[in-house]
Write a protein that binds this DNA or RNA. Structure first.
Lengths: 336, 336
DNA sequence: ATAGGTTGTCGAAGCGCTTCGACTGCGGTG
DNA sequence: CACCGCAGTCGAAGCGCTTCGACAACCTAT
């Protein structure tokens, strides 16, 4: 293993000079810089992460807390995680993956041990138990998601309330009066996961405003659960002609079941999905959808964090405006 | 930030004693141990990761290289990543996420900087350019996947060759003579990704053995790509009655299209999927499938790595035996 | 009683890096 | 022409931990 000292010797300078070449924190003459850089290359030198962290009390690592639960929307998580990792690298940061398993203890461990310089939290609940800890530490953090109380926090999220509104407006504009919402699994609501509840708020308040009837049904993914849910919906509201789906693993089952019920999409019923564009575009019917901009969220979270670490950047709530793309799954409501 | 020295002072012992309480590398009297542990708790002490890494030249971090590409099977990746992270924690390791972006440089960086003690590589190609580096370092590593040449490497993977065999045997046993394979995206084969090629080997050799006709068609996921692929298959081999699918995003489109073609599953055609059990069970038809044991693979990879890090454990190739679960998507071939 | 082994604890020497203060020349200024 | 300031470099002091050798206290076997 090559050390700073070896590079220094090879280049005929002192260790501190090499360090300053690397960090750029003091000016170095062009000649010396080149000599040092050449030695670094020739020896294949990589600074030792531990030593660097110890001396500078900066680990150059960002912690990413992903939910452990698998009742959640996995592809979105993965996309965010990858976006976080790829955005962090060019800024000089690596990413450690913490699963939700440890809960608040993970936050304590990270801040206490200096394992990471900053944290990104996903799967935020409205009253998340990790938040008080976050507020009482000087480690920068960004939430992907929106809790009930955001003072002193930085959050990045899709504006799910507006998303709900947008879905209802679109269906209302097409003349649908009876709308069913296929939601996430019940457990997601029981935990008071921010995005699920806020979507619902948006859906409900807009439906009320526009005088539509709205039926919300949480749904575990999968064909059987969806079959049961759908038959109950048609039992209760046979006239339902608009659907909003916010559970990826319910989408294809829903489409299959609607066919089975003899309801053509979009002639008889319209379906709006809340999911990544790729999923919407690849479904067996091209779905009108509001996109979940996973990459964008991951990227933004990192950029805010880096800004904070550099001393720029303040606490802020960034809500990305939802965009509804009309595809082939929505159309005018059938005449009553 | 609480330090070892502060804990030592609080407990009235020397720093080294506290260190030995933490590591258990020397015997400590019960009384002293308790006093120290109490101080640790009261002060909320967490050892500083950087200092520990520097002094011990052990970072207690495992690097996980995930593929950047999104043409791959994302849920499986995520499941593996989560399994890796949750298995690593109880062994005292954290996980850093490296995206494939950096390629072989990431390996150099990790080994050179002591960022991690060991690596897990995913998305292994048959002639992966990272392998030579891995062989020339003393850092333990485990591949999730199987390259062409495995000497000096430890690999964990599903036995995809046997998986292919199993799929064909199952269909052959039901009397199917004409089989179509819906494969991964063409890019996956162009990269010579291990699992894809080995599955194909298993499928082909078994088909030859049993005298079946086999048509392999790579397929980008999604409805349109699948539609095109399927119509070509029926053009070329109208009598095709057995399908093997190894591309999650082609599954639902395939099922939808088969309905559209008027081919009932499983009465007219049988479909075997290679995918996680959860996906197979939740599809619009309960799919007969060979499971991809993502969690198991992640867990095993970590356990091998930890064994190596503890000085136990040798290079070894672990191939998990495939298991085919019969569900509702396969049945006897229709009379010709 | 004495040599020899255990057990429990301490002090000190690093691990490889960053960073601060100090020093040396230099060119520009009054 | 003496002086100041600055660019460029160096030496040394840590950062917080692990680990080695030393040592005191005790126990056992002779």
């Amino acid at each position: 293993m090559v050390t700073l000292a070896e590079v220094a010797q090879h280049a005929g300078v002192s260790a501190s000079t090499v360090s300053y070449v690397l960090s750029g924190k003091r000016s170095i003459s062009a000649g010396t810089r080149q000599r040092v850089e050449r030695s670094i290359r020739e020896l294949g030198y990589h600074p030792n992460a531990g030593a660097r962290a110890l001396a500078s009390s900066r680990s150059n690592i960002i912690a990413l807390m992903v939910p452990l639960r698998t009742d959640m929307y996995v592809p979105v998580m993965m996309e965010i995680a990858i976006a976080v990792a790829t955005t962090a690298r060019p800024h000089g940061y690596d990413v450690v993956l913490l699963t939700g398993e440890e809960g608040p203890d993970a936050v304590r461990r990270v801040t206490g041990s200096g394992l990471a310089d900053a944290m990104i939290l996903m799967d935020v609940e409205l009253e998340d138990e990790r938040l008080p800890l976050l507020r009482h530490t000087d480690q920068p953090s960004v939430l992907i998601g929106l809790p009930a109380e955001t003072t002193g926090l930085t959050c990045v999220d899709l504006d799910f309330t507006a998303t709900g509104t947008l879905c209802v407006q679109h269906l209302a504009g097409l003349g649908h009066r009876d709308i069913a919402v296929i939601g996430e699994a019940p457990a997601v609501y029981e935990r008071h996961t921010g995005f699920a509840e806020r979507t619902l708020d948006g859906l409900r308040s807009t439906a009320r405003e526009l005088g539509l009837r709205l039926l919300h049904r949480p749904c575990e993914g999968g064909y059987d659960a969806m079959a049961l849910t759908l038959s109950r919906i048609f039992d209760e509201r046979p006239g339902t002609s608009g659907f909003v789906v916010q559970n990826e693993s319910a989408i294809e089952p829903l489409l299959a079941l609607l066919r089975q019920w003899g309801r053509a999409v979009p002639e008889d019923v319209s379906v709006v999905a809340i999911c990544p564009d790729q999923v919407a575009a690849q479904a067996s019917v091209r779905l009108t959808s509001v996109a979940i901009p996973a990459q964008e969220m991951g990227r933004r979270a990192v950029e805010h964090l880096v800004a904070k670490l550099d001393g720029r950047g303040k606490d802020e709530v960034v809500l990305l405006g939802p965009e509804l793309t009309v595809r082939a799954s929505t159309g005018p409501a059938p005449a009553a």
